[in-house]
Amino acid sequence: MTALTAAGLAGARVKGQPEPGGRPVGRRRATRFIESGWGWAFILPTAIGLGVFYIVPAFTTIWFSFSSWGAFGGHEFTGLDNYRHLVTDPDIGYALVNTLLYTLMLLCGIPLAIYLAALINREKLKGKGVFRTLYFLPVVTMPAAIAMVWRLIYNGQFGVLNYALSLVGIQGPFWLQDPRWALLSIGVIGVWSSLGYNMILFSAGLQAIPKELYEVAMIDGATRGQQFRHLTVPLLSPTIFFVTILTIINGFQVFDLIFLMAGRSNPAIDRVQTLVWLFYQDGFYSHNMGYGSVIAVLIFLLTAVFTAIQFSVQRKWVNYV
């Protein structure tokens, strides 16, 4: 056994290119795992879980989307009825626009996160760790609590925001009930709670940029703005790409905040209902799982299409060093 391994090693050294230090586990190491099929034994528990509780349900949802559900559970195959309904449902139109607007607002937070990351990465900034922790705090805070606090801030009568505005003589609106403000108000919370996470990712991306490049740029007389445009942004583009994809996926899935900030009876519900919110309403409030499933399929398709578009245009602007 030992001799075999040693021989294998020697052979591989002769054949393979000598790699510089810290070389990752090579291909030849794998052969013994494959022969015994041992690797699969390690993967099996996760794979079974993923299959039973992830892949099967995903396909079941697609199947559900072609059926109609009665109030007492039984369901029958109705073909494309749900899809036909989907195209003519005005609520879907509202929800689609709201979801896209909300996602757009989240995307507007990305430059802010880059700016924060640059701020936190400055060598001479004192107490970096403290700032990083404080900025990250909203990320680990549960949405139910976030919503609770922000409802108190946005409350039209007793809210903190209107109280602060009244001190300077402005009469604030009912932020969550006013159709003009409701979605924007919730979008602000979305940005606030994702800022820290994106900042950490950008901060790591910035640290990977060699400092020497900035030295050279400075010697060449580039201003800080030029350095940022021509050096930082291109070198940070893989992280920007990653964060953009993540943000779009998260934006399309927004539910907690909408559900918790704007109840069913909210007068501005048309302007804040999102796709997942409609999905919940149809499936678990109106007990029409078939129609709900169509919405789920729509969310999935939207996510897939937007991610695919992202990946296909990335070659134009993302620089992998």
Binding site: R29, F33, G39, L50, I55, F252, G292, A296, I299, T303
Partner: peptide, 25 residues
Amino acid sequence: RVKGRVWLVGVFLIANMLPQEVLVY
């Protein structure tokens, strides 16, 4: 480095991108 690991990693990646709502019913 089991056989088909690239596919496996791909499946895990897609699973991460799947909205939870798709699974709920």
